[in-house]
């Protein structure tokens, strides 16, 4: 099941042009593709870059109903919306659209509660590996070795595996996707929209401003993250993990591009030592091994 571009073209425009997003913004690409795939979405946005790119009140770039809410309140507010719309008998799709700060860190308990209750919500996490709207501080999603404004010598800890934490909640659908593979993302969103309950989609969304990369290569970085094995593409349904067609060949390290091909295009990895690169490579392999156990 792979979607064709003409079908995507028929979808409504959800993000209006002339907004506050930086040139080459990865999350804008992720948002456009994901939200346009949904039927009558209502989007909850906690503090994150998405609360900034919508521009200044009273003008808004989002062309869908949007609730801006506090950092750690996305999934709870979405729970309220989903239940209220059920009570009112309205056909809508309730969405959490959160960055990695809101998902990996400060908002972890709110989504964990909503996932445990299996609320009827699609939770998207656009993952740019750090706190982008406050100017590039480390998050639980920052990979080892990456320089952020709060890890000037490179982060010393490994990146959290949010997909495995989410998987421990035994929710009906989990997927990872990258803006380097937009049709794969769109297809996964469509699939998620057919399922009831708490669904989670993690999207690799490069940030040229914070990663210190060329805005023009934002989609290429999305592809490279998959091809180097940095960002595995998979789905988890009923506890069973399936690596996606687009990314399964990178399960075998032999097929992966060298990680340097990914790192060298980003200023945040410029000062990586060979030891840090080795540790990062080990982290990636460890994650592949752990994910493979869920197959």
């Amino acid at each position: 099941m792979n979607v064709k571009i003409p079908e995507m073209m028929d979808r409504p425009e959800v993000l209006l042009r002339g907004n506050f997003a930086c040139a080459g913004c990865g999350l804008s690409i992720a948002y456009k593709t994901s939200i346009s795939a949904l039927n009558r979405p209502i989007v909850v946005i906690p503090a994150c870059c998405s609360s900034v790119i919508q521009s200044l009140h009273p003008n808004v770039a989002y062309n869908v109903p949007t609730l801006n809410i506090a950092f750690a309140a996305h999934a709870s507010a979405a729970s309220g919306i989903a239940r209220a719309k059920k009570m009112r008998g309205e056909d809508t799709t309730t969405v959490v659209w959160s960055g990695d700060g809101g998902t990996y860190d400060i908002g972890l308990s709110t989504w964990s509660g909503a996932a445990e209750r299996n609320e009827n919500i699609i939770h998207f996490c656009y993952d740019n590996n750090f706190y982008s709207n406050t100017g590039a501080q480390r998050s639980g999603a920052t990979p080892r070795g990456a320089v952020t404004t709060t890890t000037p010598r490179g982060k010393r800890e490994k990146r959290k595996s949010i997909a495995r934490i989410m998987a421990a909640h035994d929710i009906p659908y989990i997927a990872t996707a990258s803006i380097g593979y937009l049709r794969d993302l769109y297809t996964k969103v469509k699939k998620a929209s057919m399922i009831e309950g708490y669904r989670f989609i993690l999207i690799d969304a490069p940030c040229p401003t914070g990663w210190n990369s060329d805005p023009a290569i934002t989609p290429e970085l999305g592809e490279l993250s998959v091809k180097t094995g940095y960002f595995p593409l998979f789905e988890i349904e009923e506890g069973k993990l399936t690596f996606s067609k687009r990314g399964i060949r990178y399960k075998d390290p032999i097929n992966r591009l060298s990680i340097e091909k990914y790192l060298e295009k980003q200023g945040r990895f410029k000062s990586m030592t060979s030891e840090q690169t080795k540790l990062l490579t080990d982290d990636l392999q460890y994650e592949w091994d752990m994910l493979s156990k869920l197959e």
Partner: peptide, 29 residues
């Protein structure tokens, strides 16, 4: 598909794309 801004415009499938220069931020994607 990849334009973050939505400034690559296509009026109907099968037609050539064009660019809305009023809002295009020039990222080069």
């Amino acid at each position: 598909l990849s334009c973050p801004e939505g400034t690559i415009r296509v009026d109907a499938h099968g037609e050539y794309p064009y660019i809305d220069y009023i809002y295009c931020k020039g990222c080069g994607i």
